[in-house]
Amino acid sequence: MTEIVAFDNVVKRYPGGKLALDRVSLSLARGEMAFLTGHSGAGKSTLMKLIGLIERPTRGRVVINGTDLARVSRRQVPRYRQRVGLIFQNYNLLFDRTVFDNVALPLVIRGQAHRDITRRVRAALDTVGLLSHEKKFPITLSGGEQQRVGIARAVVNRPHLLLADEPTGNLDPELSADIMRLFTRLNETGTSIMIATHDIDLVEAMRYRRIVLDHGHLEQA
């Protein structure tokens, strides 16, 4: 099994009738990093939500790391999500907790021992270059720093697969390039990564595969 993500003829029609994905088949190899692009409303976030089991496909099959998601019951969703790292445009940090506690959350959820949590949170914060900020509250950080906290939180569990939905959407070009370099580094340590983005310039400056969506259809590159 070499694919970490495999879509087979996936259709997603939202209640209300909107066809967001139309017979999409694609795959991401284990250890690969790819960009997902397309106009606004093309279906990028929908595709990500199917992988995160935030939405279920109307038809077709989604297989992640060998698991057919149709067979993951509602009760099993939490366990499944623990193995996927999700990163969002609007960071989704908890503002009443310190940077450390935000990054520790996935480990606390998994019930890890305190000693391990400290070690792994420090390692994750070190990776994103924010070790000195661990006691601060997110509100006191810049947008780029907040996004890096979000990335640290996503990788602290060492997920098989990292999904980032417009991680640089709110950032200036320089910070965006920083974040992309961070993803590159994470990919070099073996993590499979899929990044949805509008930022064509940035994508073209990097030599990774592009998956292009157009009105819910996959565009063959």
Partner: peptide
């Protein structure tokens, strides 16, 4: 609500 949504996204079980 927002905190609970984030926790669910991070894989928190209902019991947690």
């Amino acid at each position: 609500r927002q905190e609970i949504e984030v926790m669910k996204l991070l894989g928190a079980s209902d019991a947690f």
